[in-house]
Write a protein that binds this DNA or RNA. Structure first.
Lengths: 184, 184
DNA sequence: AGGTGCATGTAACAGGTTACATGATTAA
DNA sequence: TTAATCATGTAACCTGTTACATGCACCT
């Protein structure tokens, strides 16, 4: 009886269309320079999901070829708009926050290795987050005017990766000092 | 020719056995109060993976029933120890860091809603991370002496969730001020 | 007698990535 | 002419969760 529930990816797509993204390709490009640091998506998900959303009557696609190049432009139906704003309005639902961090895993198990190994892994982790941080800052410094939502999440992302980088550096100093003190 | 590569979950299991966890059940309990904040695992993964690791000769299981209750105790084989320390020793490999944060998604799209909606979602996100923070602090304050690795990752976890909570509060203040200023 | 914890396991499903295939358009 | 970009799509695979089934041990 009830319609199939919106999947998280479905909601992202709805949101992206609400923000003016028109095609599957367009959505993917935009995700890659905006939400990808806290929500990634691949073509393998996007195109099938666009189909499903259209079957459910939440979006509707019109063929709008550019030259000889096939192209389908999507817009939200009233039902799609309602589903999206219902989701935004529901502040009671659980907010899953899942992390998979291999660097932290290595750190967690680092007592099984040598102190030098631990410091090398710490440093690799630092570098990896520094690279992400650089990308986020590049996005942030670009002089395009950004809506409040994207700006907020970008700033939080910068804060997060910055914390990790600084924490790695602090941990490195602490561990190095301990090692030196032990050697004395 | 080459052996099937170790999966991330396989490495976690190897590590847990190296840390003295003996059974699948034991590993699951321990994951749930240690790595789960940056690496979760379910029985549906653990038991099949134990089988695969044994087939690959990296661990070996001895039946050690407790009373009439079936129980299999696993230990690392020399090959398993080697595979595990090889992984720890490789500081050049990529360190995937993946996040799926629905709260940030709602924030990202919040320009499509009202300012009040945005503040409610911000507050829900704050509460959710505060709950996680409380759990992490409870773990941290328990007077068990923790190896350096687990202690480091726990402290980083606390720092991360604490940053998010504080950032949510700061964003709330900023947005509230802006709204008030606009209304003047 | 009943609840909690210990212990093992799987089938069905959901979610997501990778690699591939195809082809037009545009800028160098 | 060739590389990059626009654009769509799928099949095979991998990873992981949920829900269920089973049964003993221990405490109250």
């Amino acid at each position: 009886m009830s319609p199939p529930p919106l999947t998280p990816t479905g909601r992202v797509i709805l949101g992206m269309i609400a923000l003016g993204r028109q095609t599957g390709y367009d959505i993917k490009q935009f995700v890659d320079k905006s939400t990808r640091f806290f929500w990634a998506a691949s073509y393998g998900q996007i195109y099938p999901e666009l189909r499903r959303l259209e079957e459910q009557g939440l979006i509707s696609g019109q063929p709008e070829p550019r030259g000889g190049r096939a192209r389908t432009v999507y817009t939200l139906t009233p039902a799609g708009e309602a589903a999206f704003t219902d989701w935004l309005d529901d502040a009671d639902e659980e907010l899953p926050f899942e992390v998979r961090a291999e660097g932290m895993l290595k750190l967690f198990f680092s007592d099984a290795g040598t102190p030098e190994q631990r410091l090398r892994n710490l440093s690799a982790m630092r570098d990896s987050h520094q690279r992400t941080l650089d990308q986020l800052r590049a996005l942030h410094d670009k002089p395009v005017d950004m809506p409040t939502g994207p700006r907020l999440t970008l700033e939080l992302g910068i804060g997060l990766h910055n914390l990790i980088v600084e924490w790695c550096e602090a941990a490195d100093r602490r561990l190095t000092t301990e090692a030196t003190t032990d050697a004395d």
